[in-house]
Design a protein around this nucleic acid. Structure first.
Lengths: 221, 221
DNA sequence: AAAAAGCATCTACCATACAAGATTGCGAAA
DNA sequence: TTTCGCAATCTTGTATGGTAGATGCTTTTT
């Protein structure tokens, strides 16, 4: 449901700050006044302020009126609920896709998985991650609810910050195997199997949160 | 995930504009420049501009740079996907609540339904609507995902605009009966029955969209 | 008469100045 | 030494002026 303001300074600042926050260049708890960022980017306070508003609405910043603006600490409960939202929607997506699989569905998914295997063999983890995301977004598109994926994407930022803290532990081989299982069930029209495979796939990533909180207690609230 | 800026002018403007848009005082397609609203509320353009940004991010306004800002027309596909999102999450909520019903769950829901019956008898449609919303939010709270309801609430604005156009057709008796059915299945721990009842409950509201589009073609895109 | 160029006038965007609340730290008093 | 209070200095919130782009009407040109 977003709108396009590309080309404006405020838009550039939003992108830059979002990348810095998700990649942990700006750490949870850091204070970033409008003046600071404005000076850092060589612009006025105005577009920075508007960027703050957008990012606050996305849950990445916390504006404390007349006090300061801080990079929001990661809320364990927020992460839990973001996962809940993602699982709810992705399960419903996979149900709809599997209920009425189109002829080309299987081929499209298989092609994506093949690309992922190539990226995995080449140890191109960045490309692998992009393709993993594309796999899920494609399922949303096949279900006719691509905007719903955009919603998940917004909330995934919270999860991505946690993932960034636990870098290098993801097993791409296992993820590929799970994608294959999902694609197979979908192609067969096996709704129950597809749902179970998707739930298992999403559940696998959930094990590391408590450990991460212990490792970086200052980043959580 | 929201932030609190209560007390500021911008915050007041956001609330006022949102109410006007949802209640169709401001109609889809209306142009509302920063200067207009600023003059209308007796404030400067700055807080109005920030309000526009927030409302645009919520999908109620469309900012066309250097051109104008208009009340966004209702997107039939957007309504459809908002319903998809709501159903996905509410179905998952009802599953979790029904899977592990606490002792007090039944009583809490029954009390709410009783209040609704009272409001219905008194023909207090406003209170009935409030209680209907509370019923669903309570289910989210019982599932431990109250924030997820807040997400639904944001998207419900789109649906509320449509509902406002079809005023007076909702059968409160039927809604109460469906709530009773949901509460009964939840109390018994009947997951399958609760899910089916919730889907039926949500599906009932979907019948009127195409007719509404015919009645108010200018409000849709 | 028709088409094209110029201009008045909108718009949102950006920069800057000012205002007001909140915090911090220093100094004075107990 | 401890505590209370005030003031300097942060912060975000608000107001206003100026800029550039887009639109539409008027005028000019063909």
């Amino acid at each position: 449901m977003g709108e396009a303001l590309e080309g404006t300074i405020a838009f550039r600042v939003v992108g830059a700050l979002r990348d810095d926050i998700v990649s942990m260049v700006l750490k949870p708890g850091d204070v970033i006044s409008e003046s600071d960022i404005a000076a850092r980017y060589g612009v006025s306070r105005q577009p920075v302020r508007e960027a703050f508003i957008r990012l606050a609405q996305q849950g990445l910043l916390l504006i404390r009126p007349k006090r300061a603006t801080v990079v929001k600490k990661i809320s364990p409960d927020g992460v839990r609920q973001s996962r809940f939202i993602r699982e709810s929607i992705e399960v419903e997506i996979i149900r709809r896709v599997a209920t009425d699989p189109k002829p080309e569905t299987g081929r499209i998914l298989d092609d994506l998985i093949a690309d992922q295997e190539a990226a995995s063999s080449a140890n191109d983890s960045r490309r692998f991650h992009k393709l993993d995301e594309l796999f899920h977004r494609t399922l949303a598109r096949l279900a006719g609810v691509e905007y719903a994926w955009q919603l998940i994407d917004d909330h995934k930022m919270q999860l991505d910050r946690v993932r960034y803290l636990t870098l290098g532990v993801s097993s791409s081989q296992r993820a590929i195997a799970e994608h294959k299982q999902i694609a197979k069930a979908v192609s067969k029209g096996d709704v129950v199997g597809a749902e179970a495979a998707m739930r298992a796939h999403l559940a696998r990533a959930e094990v590391l949160l408590s450990q991460t909180i212990e490792d970086f207690p200052d980043y959580f609230e």
